[in-house]
């Protein structure tokens, strides 16, 4: 599904990704953990080209998306993204946030867009908030709308960039619940997270990143119970 080959990325003189290689299979849920500044979010943002890479290839369904001839907008329609700070459109209602992209890009009818949005709102449990503006929603509700918004494009992959890091603790659960449902439906997901419980329970595979490289990867059981690399051990001993 997603193949990342020898990806390097730097911001000025700061090298953030130093040769990343990994493969994400269809229907797989991959959690990326690691200390802040390790390049997790940058890696995720490279997958939908919000950041361009210096060298290396990123293939989605066999297409190299770093190639200049590729229409990145078409690729992004298939790759949903959920941000740490939600980034809902404040001037649009919950419903409009969800219907905007499908009706403007996919050119589906207003009725169909509405239907699709309501189905998704039912899924994330926010039907009653369809006509309110984002500033009237709690953080957890905002993030659930953001997930519904991304899903409205019917993507093949969902990227989550620390989706619960900006939430009050009591709201983390409702968002993780939605993500868990999504995982059980078979959505391919890449989740950058500090929620070790979620990674262990929902993740099929865990990548531990530090200083721009994937230090260790394996099943949640391997990583959390028997980490072999000293850096992984030291990180986990601090967060668990």
């Amino acid at each position: 599904m997603i193949q990342i080959k020898n990806v390097y990325k730097s911001f000025g003189n700061l090298e953030v990704l130093k040769g990343i290689n990994c493969y994400i299979a269809p229907r797989e849920v991959v959690c990326v953990i690691g200390p802040s500044g390790s390049g997790k979010s940058t890696l995720l943002r490279c997958i939908n080209q919000l950041e361009t890479v210096q060298s290396g290839d990123i293939l989605i369904d066999g297409q190299d998306i770093t190639h200049p001839s590729i229409d990145i907008n078409l690729i992004r329609q298939q790759v949903g993204m959920v941000f740490q700070l939600f980034n809902l459109f404040p001037h649009k209602t919950t419903l409009e946030n969800i219907t905007l992209a499908p009706s403007k890009i996919l050119k589906i009818s207003a009725d169909e867009a509405h239907e699709r949005a309501m189905t998704l709102l039912r899924k994330v449990g926010l039907v009653d908030k369809a006509n309110v503006y984002p500033n009237q929603l709690s953080g957890g509700q905002k993030q659930r709308v953001a997930i519904a918004r991304a899903l409205a494009m019917q993507p093949k992959v969902m990227l989550f960039d620390e989706p619960t890091s900006a939430l009050d603790p009591e709201m983390v659960g409702e968002v993780l619940e939605v993500m868990k449902d999504l995982a059980h439906e078979g959505m391919t997901m890449v989740v950058v997270t500090h929620e070790m419980g979620f990674a262990r329970e929902v993740g099929h595979r865990v990548l531990f990143m530090d200083e721009g490289v994937i230090v260790e990867e394996g099943t949640p059981a391997q990583i959390f119970d028997n980490p072999t690399n000293p850096r992984t051990q030291s990180f986990l001993s601090k967060v668990l």
């Binding site: 907008n73 298939q78 949903g80 941000f83 700070l85 980034n87 992209a101 403007k104 991304a150 494009m153």
Partner: peptide, 16 residues
């Protein structure tokens, strides 16, 4: 700038 990123990540082009 998260607004531009959110729009672009949905597949809308710069102009949209």
């Amino acid at each position: 700038k998260g607004q531009m990123e959110a729009g672009r990540s949905l597949g809308m082009n710069y102009r949209q």
